[in-house]
Amino acid sequence: MNLLESHRDHAEQTDDRSITGWDGDASAFVSAAPRLFAIGLRVLRDVGEAEDVVQETWLRWARADRSVVIRPPAFLALITTRLAINGAQSARRRRETSVGPWLPETTDLSVGPETAAERREAVDTAIRLLLERLTPAERAVYLLRIAFDYPHRQISEILHLGEDHTRQLLRRARDRLATERRHQVSTTAHRRLVRTFVAAAQSGDLAGLEELLAADVAH
């Protein structure tokens, strides 16, 4: 059953309000659903999360006082946009919590020396955590996907791994980052990865980082 069929069935089963007015309100939602899904997908870039947002929009629409809504499509689009943005912000907070202050934000060259030093220390800490807890493949996938938003297809090409495998590695990396298990970290490897990461984030040229991560996975 696709997303629209699910909402149609839900509308047909919604308590005693299946009268002409409610049928019209349900129809307004079903008509807007493709646009709502597109909004969610554009913000969240994940099909499942976008579908969840549309479902939550439906629930809020069902509970809303629709008699005061002048333009249902605009009202529904606004709800969906807010839910999607909240979802994206929550996902970002989860990433920051998992590895401390997150990485791309630590490379703003416009900040003062003291702030720059603090951010460099945050990068050092985050990279060390990745080295301590993740395998080279997990670390490579995690950095490329979370820090630089690479699509899984591109990650699989860089690392010479199957696309499904990269998705599994990302899930595994998140699980490992939540544990206390740690490995001994080479100071040389730590400094090299920090230096390469910061250079990539500052310049936007990720070729060196891609090469380093791919080499670590291959060994």
Rank of each mutant, 00 (worst) to 15 (best):
R92W: 08
T179L: 00
R192M: 13
E114L: 12
D164I: 10
R128D: 01
R145A: 07
L144V: 01
D25Q: 13
L44K: 05
R139K: 03
I70R: 14
A11V: 06
D205K: 11
R120V: 07
L103C: 01
Q13I: 07
D149I: 07
G40F: 03
L109T: 15
S6R: 15
G112P: 09
V123Y: 03
L213P: 02
V47D: 14
S156I: 05
A189S: 11
E105F: 00
T115N: 11
T106A: 15
R172E: 10
V123D: 07
I19K: 11
A32R: 00
R71H: 15
L44D: 02
G208I: 05
A91S: 13
T196F: 06
R71P: 06
R139H: 01
A11C: 12
A62I: 13
S31D: 11
I39T: 12
A137D: 15
D149M: 09
A88T: 04
H165F: 07
A38N: 11
A77R: 07
E157A: 12
L212K: 10
R195I: 06
S186H: 04
V185P: 00
I155A: 10
R182Q: 11
A84M: 06
D124A: 06
T115D: 12
F29D: 03
V217H: 09
E180R: 14
D25V: 08
E210M: 02
L109W: 04
Q55C: 12
I39C: 03
G204Q: 01
E96S: 08
S6I: 07
L41Q: 14
V141Y: 03
V99G: 01
T115K: 15
R93Q: 11
L3H: 10
N2Y: 01
Y142S: 01
H219E: 15
D124W: 01
D46L: 04
L103T: 02
L129Q: 08
R192I: 12
D46V: 04
V68H: 01
R145S: 04
A137W: 08
D124K: 04
R94M: 10
E105R: 02
I158R: 12
T14L: 14
D175E: 14
A218R: 15
